[in-house]
Design a protein around this nucleic acid. Structure first.
Lengths: 154, 154
DNA sequence: CTGCCTGCAAACTCTTTGCACGAAT
DNA sequence: ATTCGTGCAAAGAGTTTGCAGGCAG
């Protein structure tokens, strides 16, 4: 799906919820969809301000829940204090995260069995599953062997 | 394993690391092992102060990493702002958490396949797995049907 | 005695919120 | 014209840290 189609999806979600289409929300949308990988609220603020310098931190934090609720973004919490966000793929694939403890890079891996597991386990407890997260923390072999980590991005 | 044996395990871990056995650390240990379920740093502070009222919040936060590193406690992060802790079982079983979004209760479920998954996925990325977390968020059927949730504890 | 540990309080990080102004419908 | 959305700055929650004094080894 193109970014234009995504923008339309965002606009109609806003309309459907009775929310207004503001320049700030559109700037945040553009900034988010220019990112190819995970980003933080602060990074999104930087990028959005390059598009519309009136965007404030508060609006970033108020818009991120809207974008995750509309399934345009996924929230990725690796338990590091700050939350990460990422463009959602078109399919509703369940993704697991592999976090490199050396370079802090987050790899996303398809893990379709998670959904099955969530349902199985929840029903035994009298619960209805909403979501599931699987996260693997790991060390970089290259770093240990050569002393440097080519994945270092952050 | 008895709590006495656990306390010895704690003491020898401290000794091995060149750390001192203080009254505060022992009080925190006692307080933690009197808990049967998950607890927060703040709850641990309350309980530890009933044993030794000189225990401070700072020491709680300085001691929790020691107790998790020594494998006496497990850290459970459900992405709710505050971290939970729990006595570690004797076996090194991999546990998944099922979190009820209605009553905030955390259920622990054995999920041995997690370790296999972590290894498989890490090796493909040139990483060595350290740990894995699986968490299912779910809603309470009883609450939806009867309007109350018997699991409510927090 | 030496230096690790401690309590206290301030600092820190990320996120949320109250308020008055401004803009979308 | 309404009313929702916004920026600003302050507040909030949970956790960490600098410091001077205290206690374990």
């Amino acid at each position: 799906m193109s970014n234009d189609a995504k923008r339309d999806q965002f606009k109609s979600f806003l309309a459907k919820k009775g929310l207004r289409v503001t320049n700030q929300r559109l700037a945040i949308f553009e900034a988010a969809f220019a990112q190819k990988d995970h980003f933080t609220a602060e990074e999104l603020l930087d990028h959005a301000r390059r598009i519309d310098d009136s965007v404030s931190r508060a609006t970033i934090y108020r818009t991120l829940p809207i974008m995750t609720e509309s399934a345009l973004l996924r929230e990725v919490d690796i338990g590091s204090g700050e939350k990460f966000y990422r463009r959602n793929a078109d399919n509703n694939a369940q993704m697991a995260q592999v976090v490199c403890l050396d370079c802090d890079r987050i790899f996303e891996i398809s893990a379709p069995f998670m959904e099955w597991y969530g349902s199985t386990v929840s029903s035994k407890l009298g619960l209805t599953p909403v979501s599931q997260r699987l996260q693997v923390s790991a060390h970089c072999n290259l770093l240990r062997e050569t002393g440097s980590c080519k994945n270092k991005t952050r």
